[in-house]
Design a protein around this nucleic acid. Sequence first.
DNA 1: CATCAGGGCCCTG
DNA 2: CAGGGCCCTGAT
Length: 326
Amino acid sequence: MAKKTIRMRKQKTIYIRPIYPFSFVGTFFKPSHFPSKLVYWQNGQLYQGIRISERILGLVISDASRDAKPRVKIDIYSDTNVTKSIVESLRKEIIFRYNLAGDISEFVKNFKSDPLLISPIKRWGGMRPSISYSLYEFLMVTTVLQNATVRRSVQMLDNLLNDFGIKLTFAGQEVFIIWQPRDMTQISEEKLKKLKVGYRAKIIKRISDDFVAALIDEENLRQIKNKEEVRKQLLHLYGVGPQSVSYILFEAFHFYEALNYLSPWEQKIYSQLIFNNKKTSAKRIIATAKRRWGRWCMLALHYLFEDIFWRRQSEEIPWLEKEIRI
DNA sequence: CATCAGGGCCCTG
DNA sequence: CAGGGCCCTGAT
């Protein structure tokens, strides 16, 4: 059990208007993501915790679009009242994390007749790359994803959250929020290893230390428009390699063409979706995607990927099940 | 029982 | 640039 629990009550509701075209479900719920206690999706609503300048808030995010005008509703929960400046910082943060100010109209326009994308775009047109987490939180997640099956990743994160996370109770649900970098400074590697994270203990420590020392700063990175510069800075972090960086560049920083690495299991899935076989190399898939979709190449793959995971929820896709190691 | 391969990354040679 | 080692777990 988490050592700390915060019970929250509803304080305020705000609305955000995303840029058209927009898919609420596609943007706020990613069926391909591994299941964690950090976010909870139910009945078209997303529950999550978030830190805004040292304050912890609970959010219930839902679709409030009207007359084809996209609109996102956010109910804000907290154990104390929230000031106007917290609310405004939260608004900005949500707009960035979920890329609500991003404009992907050109992608939709250009490829809505592309044979591979025609039905994903019909279903999810307006879906953006997004992530519920802060950069630090995302790095903790990519660390537990390394060299592990889904079950083991979940176990590692659960163990960490039980010792260092905070449980938030609001709107009749429970979600957890990850510790802060400074909470790790006095925790020994040995103690982390008891939580069965193995060699990742060192990674968790060193990334946390770098955040505490302000060697890495999410706000700064967000200002950088050059993808390769962001990549370079992320790769400086211990335990962060090409796989983690590719997730982060696309999902956290929204570079639609961040595509130069595919892990073996993803390669098999894309190979099947694009070439109808399992053995087309990652290199060839990447080259094809770049040629076909240009500066939207990673976004295009994302549409294919999420679409097949959505279909998996309602139909049997035996070849896919084999590639997803539970 | 022993061995091995994971939804990587680091380090060495 | 290739390949061994790192952690744990479940499969064989």
